[in-house]
Design a protein around this nucleic acid. Sequence first.
DNA 1: ACTTCTTAACATTAATTAACCTTATTTCAA
DNA 2: TTGAAATAAGGTTAATTAATGTTAAGAAGT
Lengths: 225, 225
Amino acid sequence: MSAKILYVEDELFLGKIVKETLESRCFEVFMEYDGACVIDAFKKYDPDICVLDIMLPNKSGFELAKEIRNINQHVPIIFLTAKTQTEDVVNGFTLGGNDYIRKPFSMEELIVRMENLLKVKKPVVNGNDELYIGRYRFQQQRQVLEIDGRQKKLSYREAELLKFLYLNKEDIINRRELLNHIWKNDSFFNSRNLDVYITKLRGYLKDDSKIEIITIKGVGYRFVV
Amino acid sequence: MSAKILYVEDELFLGKIVKETLESRCFEVFMEYDGACVIDAFKKYDPDICVLDIMLPNKSGFELAKEIRNINQHVPIIFLTAKTQTEDVVNGFTLGGNDYIRKPFSMEELIVRMENLLKVKKPVVNGNDELYIGRYRFQQQRQVLEIDGRQKKLSYREAELLKFLYLNKEDIINRRELLNHIWKNDSFFNSRNLDVYITKLRGYLKDDSKIEIITIKGVGYRFVV
DNA sequence: ACTTCTTAACATTAATTAACCTTATTTCAA
DNA sequence: TTGAAATAAGGTTAATTAATGTTAAGAAGT
């Protein structure tokens, strides 16, 4: 599996155990102890899932979730907490969380809930190397896009962009999210860069009229097949 | 919302309360008391989500989940149980369950977890992507409005507005509500903006005289087809 | 030399704001 | 109670601004 996890926990001892257990199960764990630097860590590591303790110094897990959702709509978020109040659970989900686990929890339960969330997205890009996008065939490793026997070798960024669009097809994809995922930051120049790459992909994909990259001005794109 | 729920519970008293609460929140609840006839009920009601108690006479919730997954891969399944063993949770997810709630649970938590799963459910591909509005056909994902073979590609805001009007057709729709839904706030300028978009939509929709966007001055609009 | 990525310049389109016009509602004098 | 004037809400069209599309010219790395 080898998914990247951003794990934010201020109880050092607990954190260490959880981290080690997850690593022994082949997860790649990036741990933060303090709410303050989580957003930077998020941008840097671009995790596949976030596990947030709620009670943290400086910022609560809820605040973090809100900030993460500002730059990424899709990444699954799990809250961990000692609180048992229902309103907290409601709060967690309202803020765009995807699951909520009460402490003390068992590692097995955490893992199984993480895998449950990860598999929602993964099925397409994982496993087999080939993606069938409309009438096109795309070989992810070799970055080759193919239709009617004709082949086009894509560059790294072109390929990453195509994969990301396809992975989130039918959904609204924020420019922010896209920029942070592919360029690792969302500066103005990269933003214009993205426009250039979108044009390129549209060019490559124009032989199947069913495929469209729809612009949502001020927001992002929607990839439909 | 009005999602259809298949709820399987053998504790009659608890079941009654849960059913009533869900109904008061506008869910449509089909309840079964016994594992034996759940599959028939599933086929008959075609629910949007299943809530299964695990300890049931005749068949366990796990067995039911397995059988449901045989005929439907996507419908969300939530397990309810008094058991606290981790292995049960693992079991639940392994069998294709999507969430697992321990008894006693609060109704708020159940509802919020249900809503969470309902909204994930893929925004669909074909099928309900198309709206038939009078003589027009509207493809929601592609934002294409079509009549007599002629196509008009709508912008994001135009499309959102049309969808919202159609979704609430025959009803009075508050300007406020509309502004908050599409512009996320109801400032003065956005309010004038809405007027502009209404004019645009009226223009696009004028080829079917049955369709009208009726102004209710000081209140909002009513969309009739 | 070659490809990829970035930056720049100019073109296009969507979204917003402004200006002016029309219609409904209210107000107040006759 | 009626019915013009006043006012406010909305309609329409056009101008403006901001976002994105497109193409091509530089950088940068191999």
